[in-house]
């Protein structure tokens, strides 16, 4: 079980982005988390991947509470959760060939001897061909790069997978291919999935259970963007407060 209990997190103590969010992903279960952009769901995804220390709340991996985050988290816990982010261009080290990108977690954890075998297994699983593996990120398309990023997330055989808007930048066919690759992996290993996104059609098709942001936090997300903002803080800054005049 991957459990998030009453998580409050953000980048500014005064104004946390996520307040009191709770959700649970059981082994083998696929949870979709649906929310508008800017509601804090990416921050919650980073907390779930132990990449961001929450200000309060508990994260439990198979009942074991997480006490340290990022580099300080025990390697075994960190690598138990694989992550894929929205923008492949920003998620890939621009200097690494795709094969090295996929193998990087094996190098980092001192399992070099597994590299040839794992890369050879994963490349076809995510639909990458041999010649693409020798290219660098700027020589491949967004879709191809995202396939490599997914392979990198799977290379250490994580028990959970966190996909943060994994397919938001991609076309329909690549989206379907990546989702199929995730599902094949989950079917083979029984890994849990937390898929974060704003496309309800996609998440409902992909996941066992789809949670709305307000169900997770007990709060209604900020008003749908697109409608004019009229309230207080967005007033032009050069208007002095009434008392100053």
């Amino acid at each position: 079980m991957l459990e998030l209990r009453d998580i409050t997190a953000g980048y500014d103590r005064e104004a946390p982005v996520v307040r009191d969010a709770s959700l649970t992903v059981a082994r083998g279960e696929a949870i979709g988390l649906l929310g508008p952009s800017g509601c804090g769901k990416s921050t919650l995804a980073r907390v779930a991947a132990l990449l961001h220390r929450p200000e309060s709340g508990t994260v439990l991996l198979d009942g074991e509470p997480v006490r340290r985050w990022r580099h300080r988290a025990p390697r075994g816990l960190r690598t138990a959760v694989g992550v894929v982010f929205q923008q492949p261009r920003l998620s890939a080290d621009p200097r690494l060939r795709l094969a090295d990108l996929i193998a990087e977690p094996l190098r980092a954890t001192g399992r070099r001897d597994e590299i040839p075998q794992r890369v050879a297994e994963l490349a076809p699983a995510v639909g990458l061909t041999r010649d693409l593996l020798d290219r660098r990120p700027h020589e491949v398309s967004d879709g191809q790069l995202q396939r490599a990023c997914l392979a990198r997330a799977l290379v250490l055989r994580p028990r959970w997978l966190v996909c943060d808007e994994m397919t938001a930048m991609l076309d329909a066919s690549t989206t379907a291919a990546l989702v199929a690759a995730v599902e094949d992996y989950r079917a083979a290993t029984g890994a849990g999935l937390l898929a974060v996104g704003h496309d309800h059609t996609l998440l409902r098709r992909w996941c066992d259970r789809v949670l709305r942001w307000q169900e997770v936090t007990g709060r209604i997300p900020p008003a749908t963007p697109g409608l004019p903002r009229t309230s207080g803080p967005q007033q032009p800054a050069d208007v002095p407060p009434a008392g100053d005049r």
């Binding site: 980073r46 991947a49 132990l50 990449l51 990022r70 580099h71 390697r75 960190r78 690598t79 959760v81 694989g82 992550v83 982010f85 929205q86 923008q87 920003l90 998620s91 890939a92 080290d93 990087e104 977690p105 980092a108 954890t109 990023c149 990198r152 997330a153 290379v155 250490l156």
Partner: peptide, 14 residues
């Protein structure tokens, strides 16, 4: 950058 997050998540040391 997310790629540093990804490296951390992949078990890379500081």
């Amino acid at each position: 950058r997310p790629y540093i997050d990804a490296a951390v998540s992949g078990g890379a040391s500081r």
